[in-house]
């Protein structure tokens, strides 16, 4: 059997080897490795494509191992495992209030916040917050609708990705 994987790895030496060596030791055959250096993610990780060959058991063990290393698997055989979305929240409100809103988003089920970047205006009254969230492919739209409701309730402008 064969699996095509797309994972995201931090841009520091040794990351790929730390994944690939154990995989071979399970008996999986790793081939066609492609790094997308030009296509970094919002948090600076590099997408890496590779193919795993082996028995069903070996492949399952391999995927489980990768997940256990806290590595993000983006696609398995072309099927998205997670989707990231970037958006901005802006409003004429103090920083503490905008963080309240971020907290509400963080509490949404099936939404994982992977980064928050806050920019405070000169007068401390105008805040902009950039949030990157992860959702699974099938609840992406639902998650965005919930976030829109939260932003509307808190009188913040939500700027979504196209």
């Amino acid at each position: 059997m064969r699996l095509k994987l797309l994972i995201e790895l931090p841009d520091t030496p040794g990351q790929l080897v730390n994944i690939l060596q154990p995989l071979s030791s399970f008996g999986a055959n790793v081939s066609t490795i492609i790094h997308e250096h030009d296509n970094r993610t919002a948090d600076g990780k590099i997408p890496v494509h590779f193919t795993l060959d082996g028995s069903k058991e070996i492949l399952e063990k391999g995927v489980e191992f990768i997940r256990g290393q806290d590595v993000d698997i983006v696609e398995i055989d072309g099927i998205l495992q997670k989707e990231t979305q970037t958006f901005l929240l802006l409003g004429n409100i103090p920083t503490a209030d905008i963080m309240q809103t971020v907290h509400k988003i963080d509490e949404l089920e099936d939404v994982k916040i992977s980064s928050v970047d806050l920019n405070i205006g000169n007068n401390l009254q105008e805040s902009v917050c950039k949030i990157v969230i992860e959702t699974s492919e099938n609840n992406r739209l639902e998650a965005i609708n919930f976030i829109q409701d939260i932003a509307d309730n808190d009188n913040l402008v939500l700027i979504k990705e196209i």
Partner: peptide, 20 residues
């Protein structure tokens, strides 16, 4: 209501704000 702050924060991650 788009501020310079918002535009710059978006740019940091390679995004532009456009009226779509």
């Amino acid at each position: 209501d788009i501020t310079s702050n918002a535009v710059q924060l978006a740019l940091k991650d390679g995004y532009l704000i456009k009226l779509v």
